[in-house]
Simulated assay, not measured.
Amino acid sequence: MQQATIAAINVHAESEYPRECCGLVVVLKGREKYIPCRNAAAGTEHFILPAEDYAEAELLGDITAVVHSHPDVPAAPSQADRVACEASGLVWHIVRVDQVDGIPVAGETATLEPVGYVAPLVGRTFSHGVLDCYQLIVDWYKQERNITLRQFPRADDWWNDGKSDLYTDGFPQAGFVAVEDGVQPEVGDVILMQIRSNNGVPNHAGIYIGDGLILHHLYGRLSSRDIYGGYFQEVTRAILHFKG
């Protein structure tokens, strides 16, 4: 990147601290320009770049890179960064911002390029909308059965907004149908669970992988294989079979 672009990124990253900043690098009439975007995410630990901001940047020129900041942590890409970079097909730049004598100061910058990275099914870190329980099911179906499931936009904490029933509504659109009560799950079946949902709806999903085990990704934890019994059976609300 050109020095003027780096300087503009640093100013934006410092101004957004302690939240992550996000933006886009575009080439406009042969010149590189940084376009600051809004971070639509709640909290300070990740970013969501609104689709409308991306569309507006596309009208200005060719988008060449995605930019965001890492407040108080190294600029090294997280698993979620690597997965999202692959999905975007663009170069990513990550800038670290630390508080020095009470003032946010931008520091090191790391650059990430799409190289075909795929997050492991077990042990992946949680990032809602990027590496969460639904994405784990999407990735399992792609790796194990070469089936591409439909993606859905999903706001963090949707299960507590007083109205949403995303999984009940969404899984049928992705090709799943409910099995009858009492039927034992088959490998590949999705198990819908309700875990601390103010909406009173299923908000967690795992996939049955045989031998009494489920593969799932609980909020804030690493993805794991666990015995399907006890608590997980108690909170089960439906078992779904993929019909396509």
Rank of each mutant, 00 (worst) to 15 (best):
D169L: 14
Y167S: 04
H68T: 05
R38E: 14
R237G: 03
I195V: 15
S224F: 03
V130K: 02
G206F: 04
A87V: 12
D72W: 07
E58A: 09
L60Y: 01
T5P: 00
A57M: 08
F171I: 13
R150Y: 05
V187Y: 03
A119M: 11
V235S: 04
R124G: 08
A155T: 14
I209F: 10
Q2F: 08
R82G: 05
I207P: 00
S127G: 12
V83Q: 09
S164K: 02
G182A: 10
I9S: 01
G175W: 04
F242V: 06
H241T: 14
V11W: 03
D161K: 07
A110K: 10
F171N: 03
R31T: 13
R150S: 14
P77E: 04
A55M: 14
G116P: 09
W159C: 08
D169S: 11
F152Q: 04
G229C: 14
Q173Y: 07
N39P: 08
V73R: 15
G89S: 07
L112R: 08
A8H: 00
V130C: 09
V83W: 06
N10R: 15
Y208F: 15
E113P: 00
T5K: 01
F126Q: 04
T5F: 01
A4E: 15
T64I: 14
P104K: 08
R154N: 09
V66Q: 02
S15V: 05
S223Q: 01
E144I: 07
F171E: 05
R82D: 03
N198A: 15
G212E: 10
A80Q: 05
V27Q: 11
S88T: 14
P153F: 05
L60N: 01
L112S: 01
A178M: 11
V235A: 04
S164H: 06
Y208G: 00
T148A: 14
N10Y: 12
G170R: 06
N203I: 06
L28A: 13
E14P: 05
T109S: 13
P18R: 09
I137W: 02
G229L: 12
H12Q: 13
M1N: 08
V187D: 09
I195W: 09
G200M: 04
G170E: 06
G244A: 05
I207T: 10
G210P: 03
D53E: 10
L90T: 02
P77V: 05
E108W: 05
A55S: 11
R19M: 13
E58C: 14
D53V: 00
H46M: 13
H216D: 12
E234H: 11
G244Q: 07
P50G: 06
A119Q: 09
I63R: 01
A75Q: 07
Q151H: 13
D139E: 15
L131R: 02
E56K: 14
I239S: 00
S164A: 11
S69D: 07
D157Q: 12
L218V: 08
R225N: 11
L49Q: 02
G129F: 04
